[in-house]
Nucleic acid binder design. Sequence first.
DNA 1: TGTACATCAGTGAACGCGCGTTCACTGATGTAC
DNA 2: TGTACATCAGTGAACGCGCGTTCACTGATGTAC
Lengths: 214, 214
Amino acid sequence: MTVNTDGLRSPRARRRRHRRGEGALLRDEVLDATATLLAQRGDGREVTIRAVADRVGVTPPSIYRHFTDKADLLRAVVEARFEHFRTVMRAAEATSTAPCDVLRRRCHAYVRYAHDHPGHYRLLFSAMDLGPAPLGLTEGREHPGRPAFEDHVGAVTRCLERGKGPHDPGSTFIALLLWTQLHGIADLRISKPEMPWPPAEDLVDAALAALALR
Amino acid sequence: MTVNTDGLRSPRARRRRHRRGEGALLRDEVLDATATLLAQRGDGREVTIRAVADRVGVTPPSIYRHFTDKADLLRAVVEARFEHFRTVMRAAEATSTAPCDVLRRRCHAYVRYAHDHPGHYRLLFSAMDLGPAPLGLTEGREHPGRPAFEDHVGAVTRCLERGKGPHDPGSTFIALLLWTQLHGIADLRISKPEMPWPPAEDLVDAALAALALR
DNA sequence: TGTACATCAGTGAACGCGCGTTCACTGATGTAC
DNA sequence: TGTACATCAGTGAACGCGCGTTCACTGATGTAC
C-alpha cells in the first residue's frame, strides 16, 4: 500500500499487464505481496484483499483469478512461509557436522527468524486461524510445518545420541521441551518488547546448557 | 451473544434497567461480558461493541456512557484480567512455605490458567494491540502485568537462594528464562493443539529440574 | 400525602467506512488462414 | 504479409454486511415543595 504524505492511499504506478499465457505470474506476485504485508507484526486479519491488490498494482477482483478466496490465499502463504522457514533453518546449520553445534546454530537461527520476521513467525507458530478458515491443517493433507518439526526432532536426537546408546525414546519429549523454550523466547520478545530482555543468544545458550544439549 | 438454532443472533431477554444512581453497575456488567467473550481463544478484534452490548442485554450506545471507546474498554479488561491472573497465581501457592514448592505450584497454575482461559491468556501475554490502540502501556502508568512479574521473580529468587548466598544477581535472568519456558508450553498448546503434547505438568517439572529449581 | 420536575439510564435510528466478493465488461495479444 | 478472430489478463462498478460511533430522544425514578 502506497501512502502519500497526507496518509491517503494512492494508486501504484500502473503496471504493464502480463502477456497472454503468463497470467500465472501474477499468482507469485500476489503471494509475495501478501507475505510482505504479513512480515511486520500482525496476523491474517490485518491483511486485506484490497491492500494486497493495491501493493501488486492490480484491482481486487484480479486476485480471484488465482485464489478462490482469502483463506485460500493465506493458506498458500502459510505453506510458502513454512518452506522458507525450513530453508532458513537448514542453511543455518552451515557446514558444521558436530550434532550439538548443528542444533545450537538452528536454535539461534530460530529466534533470529522470529526477530527478523515477527509477522511471519506469528503466522506460522502463533496464529490460530486465518480469519475465515482454520489455519494449516488442509484436511487430509499433512500439516505444512511437519517437515520442519521433524528436522528439529532429528537435530535434537542426534545431539542427545552423541556418546549415548542408539536411540533415546525420550528425545521427542526433549525436542518438544526445547521447542517450547525457543517459542517462548521468540514470542515474548515480540509481544513484550518493553521488557528488559537479555540477548536472545544468552537465553538460548542457557536453555541448551540446562537441557544438557551442548 | 445468544444464538438460536438457525445460528442467528437473537435479542437477550429485556433486562430491567438500573435504578437512578446505580448506572455505574452497568460498567462492571460490561467488563464481565467482554471478559466472557474474550475467554475462549481469540483476541480483541473478535470482540465487537455490538456483541458485548448484546450479551449484557443493552444497546451499543449504552457502552459509551462508561467507556470512551473500544480501546478504553479493552484496556480496562486487560487490567482486571491481570489482577485476576495474579490472584490465581497467589492462590496456587496454597499454604506451602517451601520456596521451591511454592514456585512449582505457581508454574503449574500458570499453564493451567492458559489452558482454562486461552483467550484471556493470549490477551495478557500474546496480544500486541487492542485493534485500535496499543495494549498495556497506558502512557505514564506502569504496566498492568508488572506486579505479577515481580511475584514471579521473587518466587524464583527465593527458590534459588535456598542454601546459597543471600542474593543471586542472575536470578532475574533465570526468572526470565523460566517465564519464556512456561509461555512456550502454554502458548504452543493453544496454537498447535494437534501436536502430540505430553502432559503439561511433565514439561513443567522437566523444565524446573533442568534449571535446578527443585 | 400529592404533584411537578430535574435527573439520568438507556434507546432507536442513522452515519460513513472498509471489507470480501460478484459480474459483466474491455482491450491487448497471439494465432489461423 | 495482412487481417479476422478467439483468448485471456485484468477492470470498474456495485452488492450486502457488520463495524464503531453519534445524536436526539424517551421514560422511569427519585426529590423538592
